[in-house]
Amino acid sequence: MATKALSVFRIQRRLNRSFTVTFLLFLLLGLFGAFMALPLIYTINNAFKPLDELFIFPPRFFVVNPTLDNFYDLVVLMGNSWVPFSRYIANTLFITIVGTAGHVILASAAAYPLAKYRFPGSQALFSIVVLSLMFSPHVTAVPNYMVMSWLGWIDTHASLIVPSLAWSLGLFLMKQFMEQVPDAILEAAKIDGASEYRIFWQVVMPNVRPAWLTLMILQFPILWGSDGGSFIYSEDLKTLNYALGQITQGGIARAGVGAAVALIIMIVPMILFVISQSNVIRTMATSGLKD
């Protein structure tokens, strides 16, 4: 049993490896790993700290007497505040789920023809998508605000959801992954008389499940962490991350609740990544930019 447990830690035997260098590299990895993980561990610890530990001097990193008080306080706060706290959670869930699912479907539908066929405009469209990977959404913020107000979407959830549906990284990754789907099964489906839409939905989509999960894990945290930006004004449309900002501004009295909300915001995307990791890695293997 003990040897089995230890075998997890054993380094795979590889060619041309000197022990000293391996040791030094792992030391480097460990040091930076600690740097990466400390704030995350801190968030977890903080959420379970009783109030006196949150304000102890000198500040303490780890929790000594873990308690669920902060989460109880959160539940109480949920019931009492002017806009029920559950409203923020519902808003965030709605934006995240609709935005992510819609993005996966729309990006896949656009990726399938681009990955498998050549037709007038196909290459031009794809190179525009690749070009758009080269600048951040900040560039389009000003005209986007104007487009939103023409559409009358200011202060609606559509202003957050709809633009995220056509995010270019998702289309790019999906298209690269779909190129691997063998042409033979598409031909077979065509001979059986399936329409293009049916081929897309019933043949291609089930074959690219790892890529769905990848698009999901890349899109989810962005929407989940959205604070509504400059588009949402109404209190009852605001998101969880906005509420977190309000709570932390509430100062000392809300510090415990703030720590609990921070943990919730952080942990959900991370759990999702743990579940989907192997699929995500499979998709990213095809992510390369070719000439």
Partner: peptide, 15 residues
């Protein structure tokens, strides 16, 4: 997970 975690941890950078 440890190295990728921070980039998807929402706005936890306020820590």
């Amino acid at each position: 997970l440890v190295f990728y975690g921070p980039s998807i941890s929402g706005n936890v950078f306020f820590i």
